[in-house]
Design a binder for these strands. Sequence first.
RNA 1: GGCCUCAUCGUCUAACGGUUAGGACAACAGGUUCUCAAUCUGUUAAUCGGAGUUCGAUUCUCCGUGAGGUCACCA
Length: 537
Amino acid sequence: MQDIINKIFPENLPSIQELEAKYPLRDLSPTAMVTRICPSPTGFMHLGTIYASLLNKKFADQTNGVFYLRIEDTDKKREVEGAKEIIHSSLKDYDLTYDKNPEYGPYIQSERKDIYAAYAKHLFSKGDAYLCFCTEDELKIATEEQERLKMKRGYYGKWAIWRDAPIEKVLAELSKGIPYVIRFRSHGNGEKTFTHKDLLKGDITLPENDMDVPLLKKDNGLPTYHLAHVVDDHLMRTTDVLRGDEWLSSIPLHYDLFQSLGFPIVRYGHISPINKMDGSSRRKLSKRKDLEANVAFFKEKGFVVSAVIEYLLNLANSNFEDWRKENPEKDYTEFNLTIEKLAKSNGPLYDETKLRDIAKEKIALMTSEKVFEHVLIWAQTYDQYFYELLNSNSEYWHKIFNIERGGDSIRKDIAIWSEVYDFYSFFDIEKFSKPDWGNLKTVFTVDEIKNILSEYKDIYDESDTKDIWLGKVKGLCPKFGLAPDIKAYKADKDAYKGHVGELTQVLRFAITGRTQSPDIYEILQVLGREVVIKRLS
RNA sequence: GGCCUCAUCGUCUAACGGUUAGGACAACAGGUUCUCAAUCUGUUAAUCGGAGUUCGAUUCUCCGUGAGGUCACCA
């Protein structure tokens, strides 16, 4: 036995006593939560990961605990270059700062190889792990057989052919140099059940664990998720694991591992995934199929980060929007998130309309300076043309963003930064071209339009206040058969061709080339005399 | 298929076993307005089906149905 141990484990592994001492209990209050987020460096930051991070961090912060990041890079095949940077920058974007205390590090699993090996050795020594020389093909055949017999799939019971293999056979295979994995020796009876108390989902009855899963992999000796999670969360003194609910079915295994290693079990909470409709059925956001699964999507579109965060918070605790209504100025970090209120449904449907609504609300609250700042940052990476335009005349664009901002009726039509240029493109003097009057629905003939524009040009004065301006426009109305005010028109529709609106529509169309726009007076002011006269001619 | 979970307006969700089943987004109508947006007022809209327990069930129990998750040397 000792021979095998010497052969399969490196020398000088730390002892488990040393490890326990090296990672002492944290000096925190008993109610403090130590939580974490553990992404894999696959080059893709999932919205669900941000969601889970947000919850984990929030609970740590609210209890004066600790939230940390651990990079789970034990699958070297899936690892992508630059992926760690994507993780760091995404967390930074969402203001998800994490604890970096080196005392509990390293926080990258591939740098903790010896630690896992030490625990694997410990389990092996006490008979809770064994060597398995099965090839992938052999396992596949067994699985097919299980399917054919309609039995539970997996490496368990009589299918666990190396579980009780005689030592001579093991030594023989080992001496031949046959590759092996180190498997966990399960302790449960798959026929029996136990109750897991989930932080989010409540009591769940699950079968005991009888699966002998690999602990260390064949090719590089790195741990599987199961061993790594249990060892790390113990040593890093994690108290609460809030993770995706795809892990729920691994709970029996994880309990078994915690117990076998002699660790106190962490509290678990399993979060439902965010779903999306796919034709007539719903499924969780898919990395491959759904652009929204990647947080980069929101950045590229130009969603305000705080809107995405608040959208997610509202999915977590639906009373968030009530709180927000009562505290429009407060930072979301002041909201008290509760575990009890976390929805335990099967997962909400991603709703971009709702997200946009929140984003509009956020942008409406910004000053023009803030808007400019955001648009500039966005354009810098996603719209070079617009970026240069903004920089070439920042004062002008500040004025544009200030239109109908700060008064009683704040515009609420911009949801994402990528829509800004199109919304205000008529302010791009160089690119503006004379509108096609065929697109304007109007009561006037072409000649009348010419008259209106020419008459208006004569009375136009850049220094007019809004009231004076409106008075002048209304003064023009009778000449063209229009009612100066809407009420008069409504009172006697037959007496007029229409009301002031008809006239301003003509002006609007000449000035912006559109039938809809923000306040026409403010647009005139921002454009300035020279441009206005040009567009009226 | 086995195991686990879930089921309230179109969507996200509230409702100690007693509410007129509430709110938000969306939709629709109207007021206001130079158009649009915004804003204000209002409207439409839900307890998956069937048994049972109970004076009373969205809520508890069972059956059915539907949906989601999981069953890798991936996390």
